[in-house]
Amino acid sequence: MLPPFDLSQPQSLADALQALAGKGDTRPLAGATNLVPDLRGKRETCRDFVSLDGVNELRYIKRDGDRVTLGARTTMADILDDSGIRTDAPALYAAAEIFAGRMVRTAATIGGNVCCGSPSADTVPALLTVDAEVTLSSVSGQRTVALDEFYIDYKKSVLRSDELLTSVSWNVPPQNSANLFYKLARRKGDAITVTGVAVMIAAEDGVCTRARIALGSVAPTVFRASAAEDLLAGKALDEAIIEQAARAAADQCAPIDDIRASADYRLQTAFSLTRRLLTQAWKQVS
């Protein structure tokens, strides 16, 4: 049973943005797979929602040269059904594959997963490793923000209350690259992530040309381990440098104890999984 709330059902993006404009506490509602449990569990206090269910213009996967853009209403099932995402963003595909259960994947959207701001949102580490950008739209215009700069703090982002995240886009990774994701949880199916790691390694002529490492559930927000990335860029990777980078990534974590795991365990596994994924990725590209 949910608490009573208002729901408007615009059929176009323009109407949706209008509905969000000028009102203080109005929030968008897309797949509702997070919102419904949060409303029911009294964690969500908003009582005025704008449904994006009818805003079909936000449900698309577009390609323009190397640029891939997902409309915010694109569901996890859409990502899995698309023939290209597996190569255009392998880590994202991997995250979508193990995203909750089949029914939730039908409903849950990429925009919703990004905007919920949870540190355990599984698509976010993957998107960070492809340097994804998000487009934030409002009646007064739109702006594009690097996903890396989107989150401010636990469940807080730069998104204004009158803005809607309308798309997520990124450039297809370089030819010789590996993009991996690992979700560590207390069971294999449909569980909240304890430690999530995504990496992207591109190489040319035996040298790492681009390194991206993003970690989930080990800090108030999903984040990029930039110090670790810097250690790897421009180098031929070996066991020692990978270990050093993994250590740097773990140093950037600020995990908490909760009922799923201790901070200490999260630190340890952030280190070992980063090391493992970097090793695997380097093996793939060299």
Binding site: G101, K188, G189, D190, I192, I259
Partner: peptide, 16 residues
């Protein structure tokens, strides 16, 4: 009780 729901109390799924 801190984990009285099926998202926190983890019985095995088909994947397990």
């Amino acid at each position: 009780l801190k984990n009285g729901s099926f998202s926190e109390y983890l019985i095995p799924t088909s994947e397990d």
